[in-house]
Design a protein around this nucleic acid. Structure first.
Length: 220
DNA sequence: GCATTAAGTGGCC
DNA sequence: GGCCACTTAATGC
């Protein structure tokens, strides 16, 4: 059969046979933007690998205010929190930010795969370490840095992950999300994002080169 | 073309 | 920096 699961990211070091096995355990699904994938504290039935697109995993308070715990793009896996507990409830809610293609693996099949395929275990360990580091950095940023700095840091990380370096050292990035999404991630009001953007523009740290397209300086 | 959603602004705290 | 009220721009049906 045709194996669609690419030999990259999580499946980079797997044989074609193993990839075929994993693929048979799950299913490819396409989502349009703003679809809810699961809700916090509901039974955990499936795990997701992002093949394409962007997913926001967030927590929400009773006022409806959101805090984005993490954004997941190509080659990411979620939910990664509480993987080894047997509570089997989703630790947060998730929705697609843009149109996305996800590979969906039922809980039991996913656990078996992580249990029996050493390469996946290694990937998981590295991934968890990365995410853990990321969360710690974000947390200290939220204490030590201004909203403006946090936003700039966010844009630069995005540039490193998805942007392209220009001859002049600046990066081009295409924002695959709304200002509101970014506000929820940074933890500020949407108006604040708008105002910070003006500061960054007048400080020539960022330049708009099209709709949702930015040029960004990687150092001050 | 009209309705809805997102983005941007100014004022007040 | 948040929140509110309001305007303007973009998008969807």
């Amino acid at each position: 059969m045709m194996v669609r699961l690419p030999a990259k990211g999580w499946f980079k070091k797997l044989s074609e046979t193993t990839r075929a096995e994993i693929e048979e355990s799950g299913i490819y699904r396409s989502y349009s933007a703003r679809e809810t994938l699961f809700l916090q504290s509901k039974p955990l039935t499936e795990y997701y690998f992002v093949m394409e697109g962007l997913v926001s995993v967030y927590q929400q308070n009773t006022d409806g205010k959101k805090w984005v715990a993490s954004l997941f793009s190509s080659d990411d896996f979620f939910p990664h929190v509480g993987l080894l507990t047997d509570a089997y409830v989703y630790p947060a809610s998730a929705e697609t930010v843009s149109n996305s293609t996800l590979f969906v693996l039922p809980r039991k099949k996913a656990l078996i795969a992580f249990d029996t395929i050493p390469e996946l275990q290694n990937q998981l360990t590295c991934f968890l370490a990365d995410k853990s580091q990321e969360l710690m950095n974000r947390f200290s940023d939220s204490i030590f840095s201004s909203a403006s700095d946090r936003y700039l840091t966010f844009l630069r990380r995005l540039a490193l992950k998805t942007g392209k370096c220009q001859p002049d050292g600046r990066f081009v990035i295409v924002l695959g999300m709304t200002s509101q999404d970014m506000a929820e991630y940074i933890g500020v009001a949407p108006e604040t994002i708008s105002r910070i953007m003006h500061h960054l523009l007048s400080a020539h740290l960022v330049e708009k080169v099209g709709k949702k397209k930015l040029l960004i300086k990687m150092e001050d």
